[in-house]
Amino acid sequence: MPETIEAIFKKHGRTSDELIPILQDVQKEFGYIAQESLKKISRYLKLSENLVFGVASFYTQFRFTEPGKHAVKVCLGTACHVRGGSTLLDTLERGLGISCGETTEDRRFDLERVACLGCCALSPVVQIDRDIYSRMSVNRLTELLKKYE
């Protein structure tokens, strides 16, 4: 049961320098910054919603749509790129019918690209939730996705 946004506010002061810490806590608790949260943060800090959004959209760590059940991250760092990371991404985009940064309609998967996961020796790498899958191929990836409901 997520704690309420009001409980998060209690931990922070009402000055504008608390904006990013509040956004981080809200994102952590709810998984994303909902329109409703945006409005409440705006009221709490007396900043306009547009300004709050402007700050939040600068950072890729904040998202404004409800995340899917599983987060799929494809590494496109140098090593993964050289060994076909972008082919994996293409496959996923086609297979899931979404583009990078979107969520499937059935809310099962989120698709994102990352710059490096720090295990270049195992490239190309795909991360699903907290698990790292190394030396991926298109075939293995298609099989793998079926395991995630």
């Binding site: 329109q35 945006l38 900043l47 306009s48 919603e49 547009n50 300004l51 709050v52 959004f53 402007g54 700050v55 959209s57 600068f58 404004f64």
Partner: peptide, 26 residues
């Protein structure tokens, strides 16, 4: 506070939150 910078780098645009119209954004 209707206008703010959105996103960053090459993607930077100016406007209101969440692609709202200016009318909706106050």
């Amino acid at each position: 506070g209707t206008l703010s910078f959105k996103e960053r780098g090459k993607q930077t645009t100016i406007g209101a939150a969440l692609d709202r119209t200016h009318l909706d954004a106050g």
